[in-house]
């Protein structure tokens, strides 16, 4: 029996070293919000990237994922990373983004703007639990609207997908999402640019490539220009 137990333990021990053998690239490993996936590799191709929702990335870093740089799509998530002791130094803002209303191509539901024309159309938004949903909620209140969405998605990409496929008539997504799709038309939302979400970048505490990480952050913060603008981002505040 003890022999069996020993073999069992030996077996379990076999899978543990697997965690240690990840590749070691020359550039920094950047954990960045999904909305940056189109733009960052173009700005700094040397780095290796992992794109996901900001909140999930913080969980991964807290769990020991080998990140050198963390780029968040909102302030709240970056603050959480700081308060969990995952960040080295001060986070810095490098871009902004704001919500726009998108409608399916040719606007079959006849939406005229972020107004009463949304009544009765199939509207998809982010759930209030996620940053884009919280921003949507604030905009609706600021414009005196009560939204009746047919679906509240967890990811802004799912909102975009529903409108692109024509399954929904309209949706609220970030300007960058709208800029990245030919299948939707964007309509400005009053007040949206005054309530932007901000993009922050910082070096991760204990980064394996600390020098490269600092250089990456410096270049990204100094980068504001055509690259980011082309993808629909706004300048940092």
């Amino acid at each position: 029996m003890t022999q069996r137990l020993a073999l069992l333990v030996a077996g379990a021990a076999l899978i543990l070293p697997l965690a240690a053998c990840s590749p070691a690239p020359d550039g920094p490993t950047v954990f960045a919000a999904s909305s940056l996936s189109g733009v960052l590799p173009g700005i700094e191709p040397e780095a290796s990237y992992s794109f996901d929702g900001s909140s999930g990335l913080v969980d991964q870093i807290a769990g020991g994922a080998p990140a050198d740089v963390f780029a968040s799509a909102d302030q709240r998530t970056m603050e959480r990373a700081v308060s969990e002791g995952l960040i080295d130094g001060e986070p810095r803002m490098f871009a902004t983004n704001h919500l726009v209303l998108i409608v399916a191509k040719d606007n079959p539901a006849g939406v005229t703007g972020f107004d009463a024309s949304l009544d009765g159309v199939k509207l998809v938004v982010c759930a209030t639990e996620v940053p884009c949903g919280a921003a949507t909620q604030r905009l609706a209140e600021a414009n005196g609207l009560t939204l009746m969405p047919v679906s509240e998605e967890t990811k802004v990409a799912d909102v975009l997908g529903k409108v692109v496929s024509g399954e929904a008539d309209a949706g609220l997504v970030y300007a960058t999402d709208a800029a990245g799709s030919d299948a939707v038309e964007a309509i400005d939302v009053p007040g949206a640019e005054d309530d932007p979400n901000t993009y922050w970048v910082a070096v991760v505490k204990g980064a394996a490539h600390a020098e490269a990480a600092r250089a990456y952050v410096d270049s990204l913060v100094g980068e504001w220009g055509d690259d980011l603008q082309h993808f629909g981002f706004g300048p940092p505040l």
């Binding site: 073999l7 069992l8 030996a10 077996g11 379990a12 076999l14």
Partner: peptide, 12 residues
């Protein structure tokens, strides 16, 4: 007897 090793891995 060796089968207990992969068994342990699977179980873990």
């Amino acid at each position: 007897r060796w089968a207990w090793v992969p068994f342990g891995v699977a179980l873990a």
